[in-house]
Each structure stands twice: as structure tokens, then as C-alpha cells.
Design a protein around this nucleic acid. Structure first.
Length: 273
DNA sequence: AACACGCCCTGCGCGC
DNA sequence: TGCGCGCAGGGCGTGT
């Protein structure tokens, strides 16, 4: 479900909602996430939320003694509320504060929850999960040179390249198609064969598309919601995603849908070379 | 070493 | 009406 923009929005909202709050109780559903049991989180009780970070599509909730690392998978939601909803189906984690609750709901259970102790990892970036990741595209230090040097290391297709977190973090299946459309790059093209002009467009559009999605509140396809349950608007601005056999908004040709690595790609064969 | 694929899940819409 | 199939925002482990 959520790509970088959606996770970034959750991060900002959690920063406003739960920093400084004290955890008084924790419950979980005892069901597996991504085939693994939810770990024992009793160490979190009596811990205060100090900070919230995002790396790739992971959220990191820092407390005095731990880092709680949450990935939303395809259908994960983090909701901050006064109490649990009437329908508690698919709620797998409940974090109770004095006067509110943060709960994790995930229909498909493709997300993950992990707890790391500061006695073992002083800094969250030293957690193995984060050690082999590529550039954060919205970090001010992310440059054209960073992208260019990553492209030179890869022989995969343009679509697979921009979705691979070991090069650039946070771009998922929706924004990959949108970024390549705006950059006029055919998603099946081998990434190190694109022109300099295309590389420059790619750099610009990675940053612009992700920022635009954040400013529009992210994409709500079926179940992405903000921590208060409201929706995003980016889905109304797609050029190609889920628009197969519709007209290209630029040239009028039919948008094509193909499969790459088992996932749908949408593009305009006329605009993207 | 780098890449492609199966698998981890539930629910929805479609065609028959 | 109902059933089976394919499909859905992600990423890990495995095999080539």
C-alpha cells in the first residue's frame, strides 16, 4: 500500500500526535505478520515516545530504551484515536497511552513489527534492516550525481531500478509508473542505456512526484488513510497508473499495461521511449 | 553478484 | 446466487 509519501504523512501526523506520550499498555492479535509472529513488546510499557523517523518505507518509533520499527506492507494502517472502533477485525497491535490509543490494522498482514533495544543498537541506522539501503530521494543531500552513479551500477530495467531500495528508497509501484511517464522513459528500457536528458528528467521527477503526492495527502486507492482516518487526493492526478486502455493525457494514445517482475506497469508507448 | 520468482495474506470484482 | 480466478500500494528468502 503505502509508498514514501504515504509513510511520510503518517510520520508527520504521529509526530504531532504521540511524541511525549507514555505507553501504559500493549496488546496484540497473536496472528502472524508476513508469516512471522508479532514479537513480545512488553518492554515498551512505561516507555515514552521520544521521536519518530522514516527510512525507506519503514517507520521508527524511538522510546527511551528501544526502537519500534513498523512496516505497513500493502494494507497496513496506523490509527490514532480516543478508543478502538466497533469493528476490531484485522487490528493486530494496540498501543495504549493515558488518554488515547494508537492501533495497527492490516487486512493482508504483509506488514512487519520489530523491536530493537538501544543496548544493542545505539542509533536506528545501525539496525541491519537499514544498513544496505540506497539514497533517500527527499533528503536535501540527494543529488543528480548520486542518481547517475547508481544508474551506472545497474543493468536492470528502468522500472525495476527505481523501485529497488538498494539504489533509491521509497518509490513503489504507483509512483514508479508516474515518475517514468513524466520523465518520458520506457519502463522496459535498460536503465544504463537512457539518455542524459532522460536521467536529468528522472532526477527532477523523482523529487517532484514524491513531493506532489505528499502535498496532496498521498494516494487513497482502497485503504490508505491518515492517522485520523481521512483520505489522500493524489489518485485523482495519475497520468498512467490504473489508466490502461484510457487515453494518454498528453498525446491521446492508449495507455498500455504490462507485467514486470510480477507487478503491473502502466505507460504510454508513444510518449515513453 | 545481481537478478527473477514464489510466497507471505485477505478481499474485491469479474466471468461463467 | 455462487463459485473460482486474477488482481491489489511490498519485500524477503531462494534458486539460477
Amino acid at each position: 500500500m503505502p509508498e514514501l509519501p504515504e509513510v511520510e504523512i503518517i510520520k508527520k501526523q504521529l509526530t504531532n500526535n504521540i511524541i511525549g506520550k507514555n505507553i501504559v499498555d500493549i496488546k496484540n492479535s497473536n496472528l502472524s505478520l508476513h508469516g512471522k509472529p508479532i514479537p513480545n513488546l512488553s518492554k515498551l510499557i512505561c516507555q515514552k515516545i521520544l521521536n519518530i523517523f522514516r527510512r525507506n518505507k519503514y517507520l521508527i518509533l524511538e522510546t527511551e530504551k528501544t526502537f519500534l520499527v513498523i512496516h505497513l506492507g500493502m494494507t497496513g494502517q496506523l490509527i490514532s484515536a480516543d478508543s478502538l472502533p466497533a469493528n476490531q477485525k484485522h487490528i493486530h497491535l494496540e498501543i495504549y497511552f493515558d488518554k488515547s490509543i494508537l492501533y495497527y490494522k492490516d487486512i493482508r498482514r504483509f506488514g512487519s513489527i520489530n523491536l530493537y533495544c538501544k543496548s544493542e543498537y545505539k542509533d536506528y541506522l545501525s539496525i541491519p534492516l537499514f544498513s544496505k539501503l540506497g539514497y533517500e530521494p527527499l533528503d536535501p543531500s540527494f543529488s543528480f550525481g548520486n542518481l547517475d552513479s547508481s544508474i551506472k551500477k545497474s543493468k536492470t530495467t528502468a522500472k525495476n531500478f527505481i523501485m529497488d531500495g538498494k539504489y533509491i528508497c521509497g518509490i513503489g509501484n504507483i509512483y514508479a509508473s508516474e515518475i517514468l511517464f513524466l520523465s518520458k522513459i520506457n519502463p522496459t528500457k535498460i536503465i544504463n542505456k537512457i539518455t542524459k536528458k532522460q536521467k536529468q528528467a528522472l532526477y527532477k521527477n523523482i523529487v517532484e512526484v514524491l513531493n506532489k503526492a505528499i502535498s496532496l495527502g498521498g494516494s487513497t486507492i482502497s485503504d490508505f488513510v491518515h492517522t485520523n482516518g481521512s483520505s489522500g487526493k493524489m489518485q485523482d492526478h495519475y497520468f498512467v497508473y490504473a489508466r490502461d486502455s484510457k487515453d494518454c493525457k498528453i498525446c491521446g494514445s492508449q495507455i498500455t499495461k504490462i507485467k514486470q517482475n510480477g507487478r503491473s506497469t502502466f505507460y504510454c508507448p508513444h510518449c515513453q521511449k
